[in-house]
Design a protein around this nucleic acid. Sequence first.
DNA 1: GCCGTTTTCGGCCCGACTGTTTTCAGTCG
Length: 575
Amino acid sequence: MRVTNQYIASIFAEIADLLDIAGENPFRVRAYRNAARTILSSSKNMADLVEEGFDLTTLRGIGKELSQKIIEIVQTGELSFLKRLKASSSPELETLLRIPGLGPRRVQQLHKELHINSLQDLKKALQKGDVEKLPGFGPKLIESIAKGLEEKTYEEKRYRLFEADPVAKEIIKSLKRSHRLLSIEIAGSIRRRRETVHDIDIVASCEAGSDMMDRFTTLQEVDKIIMKGPTRSSVTLKSGIQVDLRVVPKDAYGAALHHFTGSKAHNIALRKMAVKRGLKINEYGIFKADKRIAGKKEADIYKNLGLDYIEPEMRENRGEILLAGEHRLPRLIEEGEIRGDLHIHTTDSDGAGSLREMAMAAREKGYEYIAITDHTKHLTIAHGLDEKRVRKQLEVIDRLNEELEGITILKSAEVDILEDGRLDLPDTLLKELDLVVCAVHYKLKLSKKAQTRRILKAMEDPYFSILAHPTGRLIGLREPYEVDMEAVIKACTHRGCILELNAQPDRLDLTDIHCRMAKEAGVPIAISTDAHSVRDLDLMTYGIGQARRGWLEKSDVLNTKSLKELKKYLKKMRP
DNA sequence: GCCGTTTTCGGCCCGACTGTTTTCAGTCG
């Protein structure tokens, strides 16, 4: 069993928590957290690197000690250091860290003074009134802890981008009515277009005497105020999501926007870089010996460090800073560069719009082409098409193509990949399609080996063009099915297949890291909405966000090609 | 525990807000 990067990172994160509670050197703790982050955001698999004998100490934040530990985890599946650590402390203490108001110092205090080892212990101690006897635990803090326990805030909730994004936009709309407002923008992970976010960050600048903070904390959707200050406030909404608002003077707006866009790892890396050059960055600007040299515009932060401007989606400290210094940043794809949509359903299977309606809507969006990809017969629940119905649909498409100006309908289907790796339609029919989109829709729980073999087998079909939603996940609802993505990408390069980035915001597979892996391997990506209605065509924006997070450029994406180029490309794929 | 174009030792990003305090530690982002 090969260990994943996530697994290794989770071990290091756990060690960091335990050392933190034990009162260890905070920088040692930080070293484990940094390493966990590095591993999690690496596009390379640690297990592979170990096998290849790669020198892990060349990775940022990983030295001799942690390199050894990674090797041990890869080779044995566990880490003796963590075992020892767990044996000498109480592993459940980590959970206490997630209660608001409790950090390592206070958890340590609870443990030492009251022998509290778990949430249960804490609950009992609270009821008995033991906790309030501890120095530093006043009534407000006790209340916060009790509430945290009751509301289970220790189970961190993340919201999917498409849930948080519209809420954020609504709040901005309300706050724009504030007096003396100069600028306001969404920052944080929404601006970086992360697939899930844990809060909404907003940055604004106002002239003196603005009523914005009061307006913010009294918004109708606000459930409770976590804190309120002149420049910074936090609230939770009735829906449970937390919103932070930061208000700064206009000369600091760019710096504040940058600071609150993050990511934390990106900001830390930049600040370290600044320190080396005798500069200092904070949310008010970039400073040389206490003198502000910039801060009004976000781009000035980068400029003063000798860096090119880095798009928010790239700010994860995954190598973008280095490239910005060498003026080699990719020029990220933009929504306007998309020329068509290659995954669209109609009323013939489980879509809500007719063929004609979908085509007209796509033309309205300025597209040159769409591919109609209704389900095939195995997917009975979606009224999948058998050969006869596919042939009938092809005739309709021919007629529509003759009739409609300004849009071309490509013939396709979302063909089921059967359990044994065969496709759900015969080659004699697939041959007549312009492209063939293939996907796994059942038997999602096969072993990684079997699932990978199934997909690779399907790719051997000479008419296989695009692998749709390559991991089958539904964010927060269904885990991705197990598949060896590296093997799939490798197979794509050999067989000339394309991977789909599914723009449905609850799917968004590929992940950002998968996108980078594909890009590095030279595998083209199709960004497709998998539209089941006319409105779904607008989901493209989420796919673009994910693609940009994966560093994709126009040239990496299949459906930025003109119809002519696309047809030529598809023809070349065929035997 | 990591890291180095001043360094192999001695640093390690930075500031707001809260609560419990008489000047600040802890938490959070």
